[in-house]
Amino acid sequence: MRTHNSGKSSLGALVMAPIHFLMGILDAPLRWLQRATGIGGMAAFFLMPNMLIFGIFVLLPFFINFAYSMTGGTALFLPDRTFVGAGQYARLFDCRSYLDPGSCAEDTFWTAVKNTAWFVVLQVTLMILVSLVTALILNRDLAARSFWRAVFFFPVLLSPVVVGLIWKWILQRQGLLNFGLYGLGFDPHVWLNDRNWAFAATIGVSIWAHMGFYTLILLAGLQAIPKDLYEAAEMDGTRPARAFWRITLPLLMPNLLVVVVLVLIRAVQIFDEVYVLTGGGPGTSTLYLTQYIYETGFAAQLRNPGLAAAASILMGAVLVVLTLLQLGLGRSEKKGGRK
């Protein structure tokens, strides 16, 4: 027994040796640094690698993008572009009525804003409802519960392009859905040519593709709720609906809050699966903001990186507001919890 233990410890010592050696080298300079800068300086030192990555890949592109949004012309390099100040923003906001995209100079931008706003309202509401209901069902003692959890999570693993293509094959004129309808004696319908159906399809497909992830978060929250609360409520004769409103929902709120914000941010950024499924059509009925930015900056015959950058800064501002909202709600939730 002793031999076994000593073998284990000698293996551990062998594995740890290079780490101890490295620590030995670092120990003296780190102690010197702590003496020189104090505890606060050490925190900054250890945060620096992450901050550096964040700065290079998030902050720097943001500032470059902002600089682009103040320039005009079709040239790609910033030094080759002409400074136009807030000209691109003025062009985006040049409208007689913001509620009527047709009255705007950049009508396509406002159509994309309107479509995105509707998409966010409908998709976020439905996504949360569907994810919550699914999580509640999957939290029950179902037969083959693990299998069902895997089934709902599986679409999350698919690439958005694959998701778009699968649903295109289902919904197109000679697709699986029409084949089924025809077999049942119904008239086929060209779903993706119909403005309303195409819009509904983008919502449905995005829910199908991502609900598994949010269901998982909510399921984790449901499983963290102590069972004895329900048992006590049952002993008091509480109806299941009341237990849901008074126990489940309040205790699930932190998870629900995370889900709401994640779904909101993802909905504002919607692009990939919709681009493959409808290409923004029919007409511009499923043209969302990210596609507008992509097409203006990259796909148009004469690209306008300045206008695309200005639109993306505005979209970024919306995302910042949503994130601040999450932080604010998170804080008030914590305060509420303390009370």
């Binding site: 396509t108 004129r173 060209v190 993706l192 040519n193 409808t278 290409g279 923004g280 059509g281 029919p282 007409g283 511009t284 499923t286 043209l287 596609q291 097409e295 796909a299 148009a300 015959q301």
Partner: peptide, 11 residues
């Protein structure tokens, strides 16, 4: 109609 309404922009 399928070809012409199948996308937005100049795709």
């Amino acid at each position: 109609k399928d070809v012409w309404v199948s996308a937005a922009g100049s795709t």
